[in-house]
């Protein structure tokens, strides 16, 4: 097993810990944790898209009142339960997103025919991006796309085989750190499940 596959496996083992989390504080901690994992792998964290997700999902849940009445906005009641439910859902989605970023950060190779095809797709993707720059596209785009496609086809393909076999020691280290991540995410789940974390609402 390569290091990138270990990372992938860690993510798969941790997914249920996020999905099953019922406690708001618990999911918030888990999200924070996976965001730091993703940032550690060079992923950028932008606050605005996440804020938009949080606000839109939370406010969408307000349409279904649930629990303590907080304020009325034009005959429309804002309830605590609905707000918390929306926030929890948005956080779960954010957590899944950043966990996913982390899982594929090592560019794992996928097995089988599909994996081979995707590798070929990425090979062409690289060539298109470099080719597009080299032809210095001018509008009309149709001509530019045409030239690019003809160029790619003429030159044929030689998919670079990427070998990602790291040393055994490196893989072991990655395995151990990933096992720790799984442990942290699952203990946060059990902390919420067993009522060790305070519940709101």
């Amino acid at each position: 097993m390569s290091a990138s596959q270990a990372t992938l496996l860690m993510g798969i083992l941790s997914l249920p810990a996020l999905l099953l989390q019922d406690n708001l504080l618990g999911i918030a901690c888990q999200v924070l944790y996976v965001i730091f994992l993703a940032i550690g792998r060079g992923r950028k964290f932008r606050i605005l898209p996440n804020l938009i997700l949080l606000i839109s999902v939370s406010s969408a849940h307000l349409l279904q009142p649930n629990g303590l009445h907080l304020v009325s906005l034009g005959g429309f009641s804002v309830t605590l339960g609905a707000l918390l439910l929306g926030a929890r859902k948005a956080l779960t989605l954010m957590g899944l997103l950043y966990l996913s970023h982390y899982m594929v950060s090592g560019r794992p190779e996928f097995p089988g025919k599909l994996g081979k095809l995707v590798a070929m797709q990425f090979y062409y993707f690289e060539r298109i991006t470099t080719g597009w720059r080299s032809i210095q596209p001018k509008r009309p785009f149709i001509g530019a796309i045409d030239r690019l496609m003809l160029l790619l086809e003429d030159s044929g393909s030689e998919p670079a085989s990427i070998s990602t076999k790291g040393s055994l020691r490196a893989t072991t280290r990655v395995l151990i750190t990933n096992a720790m991540h799984v442990l942290v995410l699952w203990s946060l789940f059990f902390a919420g499940y067993l009522g060790l974390l305070p519940a709101f609402g």
Binding site: L68, H69, S77
Partner: peptide, 8 residues
């Protein structure tokens, strides 16, 4: 108890 709750 002076508070209000709302449910769907």
């Amino acid at each position: 108890g002076g508070k209000q709750w709302v449910y769907d």
